[in-house]
């Protein structure tokens, strides 16, 4: 039985007539890295605000099984007359959990900010602010870390450092981060939730998402008779759909790869049209994301 550290029960949030979240049931396992994905305006920031106690739900309930929760907004900002080291040390002091002062240097080093540590925040780039924000959150040793688009608008090097920091948290903290950068999600997340216009349309593993909404498939090329092949294949329980791309070519989406491997060639033989090739296809995460959130 996996411990659930973050959960919401039919949580909704409205801003006037606008429904930002609509009866969302979120469930995040302890120690996991959970990716909350969705297009702009899907409700990701609102959800993080609710989980971080910064906003209150209109209805439903939010449960976060720890008081040690840190929230990192998408564009962290600090009093620009403080140094990076002072920001992290302030965070450490406020956490009041016995974290030694030496931890400040450790997290600054992990964030690649040692050289800039004693400079005023005023001169920091956006990427440096993002890493500083993460360092200030990590130094508190939070049980739950909520990150809002942590790698958005960063250059590749900055993005890499942020993702490494998130990956280092794996198992030590429960990390929930929102993003619309699917490569990032794919790289560091154990589980994902997909929000679309305030609704949670999928929750589970990445593999499960691809199987359920995109999944595996095959492209069948034949001399002729694509319509007849497509129609026959639709009768199979393991076929999710077919798409006739030309009289010679059919795309077949399947729900069960094992069954497809056993049955596809047999069905094609039954139909009797000369087959030139059968090749497997795999939906990309991006294809699935676009499909799920359209």
């Amino acid at each position: 039985m996996v411990d659930v550290v973050i959960s919401t029960d039919a949580v909704s949030k409205r801003y006037g007539d606008v429904v930002a979240l609509d009866r969302v049931d979120l469930s995040v396992s302890a120690g996991s890295v959970y990716g909350l994905v969705g297009p702009n305006g899907a409700g990701k920031t609102t959800m993080l605000g609710l989980l971080g106690g910064l906003r209150t739900p209109t209805s439903g309930s939010v449960h976060v099984g720890s008081t040690s929760v840190q929230v990192l907004p998408d564009t962290p900002q600090f009093d620009n007359w403080l140094t990076g080291r002072e920001v992290v040390d302030l965070s450490r002091t406020l956490a009041d959990n016995g974290t030694p002062e030496s931890a400040v240097d450790d997290v600054l080093e992990s964030a690649g900010l040692v050289e800039a540590a004693d400079r005023k925040v005023k001169g920091y780039s956006r990427g440096m602010l993002q890493r500083l924000g993460l360092a200030a959150a990590v130094v508190t040793r939070p049980d739950v870390l909520l990150l809002d688009e942590p790698a958005a608008a960063l250059d590749p090097a900055g993005r890499r450092e942020v993702l490494n920091l998130v990956a280092e948290m794996h198992g030590r903290s429960t990390v929930l981060f929102s993003s619309h950068i699917l490569d990032d999600v794919q790289e560091v997340c154990d589980e994902i939730g997909v929000l679309r216009r305030g609704e949670l349309v999928y929750q589970g593993s990445l593999g499960g998402l691809i199987d359920r909404h995109g999944g595996s498939g095959y492209t069948v090329v034949m001399r002729s008779g694509a319509d007849a092949v497509a129609e026959r294949l639709l009768a199979e329980p393991w076929v999710r759909g077919t798409s006739v791309e030309s009289d010679h070519r059919v795309a077949v989406a399947v729900t069960d790869t094992d069954a497809a491997e056993q049955r596809l060639v047999r069905v094609l033989a039954e139909v009797g049209h000369p087959v030139i090739s059968v090749s497997p296809t795999q939906s990309s995460l991006e294809d699935v994301f676009l499909e799920v959130t359209k």
Binding site: G52, G53, L54, V69, Q70, V71, P73, P76, Q77, F78, D79, S91, L94, A95, G133, A136, T140
Partner: peptide, 8 residues
């Protein structure tokens, strides 16, 4: 900045 302080 408010989030930084309010969550701590």
């Amino acid at each position: 900045m408010s989030i930084f302080l309010r969550t701590k």
